[in-house]
């Protein structure tokens, strides 16, 4: 049997009305947590909201989330063959699922 990672991911649009969903993700050594999140979008649920630009280089700084309660970049944190809990940043306004309002106030669109 191939190894899997279990990603327990917080889903929702409202911080008070969301919940966790768990996904089994095929595990290959060396993968990042972001690899796992991208796999879920392409193979299980494309509505999972997660933001990133650079995928791998740790240049865009967009994929910051809480993994097992600590703040990490999803692109540099390794996926592990166990259950890992992924949540949006608790100190930023929630937009949806794992996406929070991370832009500095002066860089947000205002109509």
């Amino acid at each position: 049997m191939t190894a899997t990672a279990r990603l327990k991911i917080w889903r929702g649009r409202d911080a008070d009305a969301g919940g966790f969903e768990t996904y089994e993700v095929p595990f290959e050594p060396g993968q990042s947590v972001l690899d796992g999140l991208r796999w879920i979008r392409a193979h299980r649920d494309p509505t999972l909201a997660v933001r990133f630009s650079c995928i791998n280089a740790n240049a865009c700084k967009e994929c910051m989330v809480e993994i097992d309660g600590a703040t990490h970049y999803a692109c540099t944190e390794r996926l592990e063959p166990r259950e890992m809990t992924v949540e949006p940043l608790s100190n930023k306004a929630l937009l949806r699922d794992l996406v929070t309002e991370i832009a500095p106030p002066g860089e947000r669109f205002r109509g």
Binding site: S53, C54, A59, C60, K61, E62, I102, A103, E107
Partner: peptide, 12 residues
Amino acid sequence: RSLIGRGGATVM
């Protein structure tokens, strides 16, 4: 479409 000055190619 993402953050200012962090996406795209230059930063990479």
